[in-house]
């Protein structure tokens, strides 16, 4: 609970009450996986996100960039309703997943989160063995009824996360004993294990060293073939390396969306340009 409160106070940057700014660039994509329209997020009565509208395409990596406190993490957490766990958080607007509003009262977060997985800023493996870290979610969902099925899922997930060769001999050891980069890949394997369709990544490399970061970035590129990935990052280099589309947030507004190339070579909005040229942020 305390942790939640801390997080809340961090994100509760006061925004002056004002109209949202219009987003520049094309927010639409062909055959979108997720569609967000006019999403507002409030913490109690403070607004954190203003009228954000954006589509998320299939098999693409969407990078969300912007200065700290701009609301990109908040928005990311809306996409699989992780904000539900924060007291006083309220989301309005529409977020459609395969055509269905995920904030509809009939939608159940449990299967929703099984379809939209998440990887966090700090690696957070469970205090269990490596094997159980990966097999736990499939087990509770009933995806792995037998030991053989579980073994299969564990192996393929760890393979996909590029961790199998490093840990295959010590699957029964605690996941917390791995190095930071390995832990983060274990968390990615954990997310993959329930066969999600979308993976949300909240600054997955900010706690890692450059070598581990490079491994994760390669992994993201591979995973794109099977999953839709939305990644929040502080590093513009990372955004330009891994993503196809980029969205720039500023003080709760989605300022500009476009293909990564466009955003980084000829941004349309002054704020975007200032940010990517390193004038602030």
């Amino acid at each position: 609970m305390q942790e939640v409160l801390k997080k809340k106070s961090l994100e509760k940057r006061v925004l002056a009450p004002r109209e949202s700014r219009k987003t520049i660039g094309n927010i639409n994509v062909q055959n979108p996986r997720m569609v967000c329209r006019n999403v507002d997020v409030y913490y109690d009565d403070k607004q954190a996100i203003r009228k954000v509208s954006i589509d998320i395409g299939r098999n693409e990596v969407l990078a969300m960039i912007g200065p700290s406190g701009c609301g990109k993490s908040t928005f990311l957490r809306c996409l699989n309703r992780m904000n539900d766990t924060i007291d006083g958080c309220r989301v309005t607007g529409k977020i459609l997943f395969d055509g269905k509003d995920i904030y509809d009262s009939s939608v159940d977060v449990v299967p929703l989160r099984a379809q939209i997985g998440m990887v966090f800023q700090k690696p957070n493996p469970f205090p269990k063995s490596i094997y159980e870290n990966v097999s736990w979610a499939p087990k509770i969902h009933g995806l792995a009824e037998s030991k053989a099925e579980a073994d299969e899922i564990v192996e393929s997930s760890l393979h996909k996360a590029g961790l199998w060769d490093e840990v295959k001999d010590r699957l029964d050891q605690p996941g917390t004993g791995l190095s930071g980069g390995q832990q983060q890949r274990l968390c990615i394997a954990r997310a993959i294990a329930v066969s999600p369709e979308v993976i949300l990544m909240d600054e997955p490399c900010s706690a890692l060293d450059p070598i581990a970061t490079a491994k994760i970035e390669d992994l993201i590129d591979e995973l794109r073939e099977q999953y839709t990935i939305v990644i929040v990052t502080h590093s513009m280099q990372q955004a330009s390396r891994v993503s196809q589309r980029t969205a720039f947030f500023h003080l709760g507004d989605l300022i500009e969306v476009g293909s990564t190339d466009t955003i980084f070579t000829k941004p349309s909005h002054q704020l975007t340009e200032d940010y990517i040229t390193g004038r602030y942020g």
């Binding site: 942790e3 939640v4 997080k7 699989n80 992780m82 766990t85 977060v109 449990v110 299967p111 929703l112 989160r113 099984a114 997985g117 998440m118 990887v119 966090f120 700090k122 957070n124 493996p125 469970f126 205090p127 269990k128 736990w136 979610a137 509770i140 969902h141 968390c187 954990r190 997310a191 294990a193 329930v194």
Partner: peptide, 25 residues
């Protein structure tokens, strides 16, 4: 830490599953 709860919720665990399998251990 809240991050452990988040980890469990993010793979679609219910509250009681999170409590029984992650928090209590």
């Amino acid at each position: 830490p809240q991050s452990l709860r988040d980890g469990a919720y993010s793979v679609g665990a219910t509250r009681s599953e999170t409590i029984k399998h992650v928090l209590i251990p």
